[in-house]
């Protein structure tokens, strides 16, 4: 007996290329569950991805139209896709290095424009595919292959950054919070405008092994131990919140959507001319 949601995947390519215990597969799994529960037709979903392990979540596995772009540029490509195919759901899935490092500018500008795409940023703390180098999401003082003496930089709080940049939906969950995350994916897919979820995800191979968390489950247990729901923030002192993962919905609001605004302009101009 096989998983009934494998119908959404290019099954001839399975099992996935992900390492044992990697969180990318959990994101794929939850994405499929969310699509199924929303009764979306995969032919109406266009996946756009960048470079890195988490970009492999939809490409090649999710069986819909897929644009696997250059490193960091998925949101820019997705912008072109959405403008010309506004009736389709456009989803970007990529990593912390891809979307908040090399592609950070596209991320905040797409949020500012409020273009109707859903972005799942899979944050595994490092550049996993290239061997675990420090990323803009690596915690302070953490040892990576390019911070052997500890990370001298501070990480972005990406979900808060995207909320501040203007997105209409921004949340953070981890691959441990499967029910919350599945619900958030459904909310983001249904949200008109730029909807963003930062997903903390385990990379046992390139991150875990350097910090003494060798198995996927070890990192999941850390997620469980270190997460604080945004609703409960007041119960903690600032000191207690240090090194905690704040999970929950950072923002949900409504603003005019970019492609609709463009369409309104066209309608007006064409009526006049």
């Amino acid at each position: 007996m096989q998983h009934h949601l494998l119908k959404y995947l290019r099954t001839e390519l399975l099992p996935t290329a992900f390492c044992t215990g990697c969180g990318c597969g959990t994101v794929l799994n939850l994405f499929c569950h969310a699509i199924d529960e929303l009764k979306l037709d995969p032919d109406d979903i266009i996946s756009v991805t960048g470079i890195g392990c988490s970009s492999w979540i939809p490409s090649p596995y999710f069986a819909g139209d897929t644009l696997h772009t250059t490193h960091g540029r998925s949101i820019a490509f997705a912008t072109g896709v959405k403008v010309m195919k506004p009736e389709k759901k456009v989803v970007v899935i990529a990593g912390d290095g891809d979307l908040s490092g090399i592609g950070g500018n596209h991320l905040i500008h797409a949020a500012r424009r409020n273009i109707d795409i859903t972005v799942l940023l899979v944050n595994n703390y490092v550049y996993g595919m290239t061997g675990g180098q420090v990323s803009p999401a690596t915690p302070y003082e953490t040892s990576t292959t390019t911070t052997p003496y500890g990370n001298p930089e501070h990480p972005f709080e990406i979900a808060e950054l995207v909320a501040a940049a203007g997105s209409v939906y921004s949340a953070r969950w981890t691959t441990y919070h499967i029910f919350h995350l599945k619900k958030a994916i459904k909310e983001a897919m249904n949200k008109k405008g730029f909807a963003f979820i930062e997903i903390f995800s385990q990379c046992p191979t390139s991150y875990g092994r350097r910090v003494g968390l060798r198995e996927g489950i070890d990192i999941l247990k850390e997620f469980k131990k270190n997460s604080v729901n945004i609703k409960n923030l007041k119960k903690f002192t600032e000191e207690e919140l240090e090194n905690k993962i704040v999970v929950g919905k950072m923002i949900e609001r409504s603003r005019p959507e970019f492609v609709e605004s463009l369409q309104d302009v066209n309608k007006k101009v064409m009526e006049e001319t």
């Binding site: 990697c22 959990t26 441990y176």
Partner: peptide, 24 residues
């Protein structure tokens, strides 16, 4: 459903026994 939802390989399926006849 935790095992089914969290499995990184979509390898785990949980089925309510009564419904087996309908879905299998």
């Amino acid at each position: 459903m935790i095992c089914e939802l969290i499995c990184p390989e979509m390898a785990v399926v949980v089925v309510e026994t009564e419904t087996i006849g309908e879905t299998a």
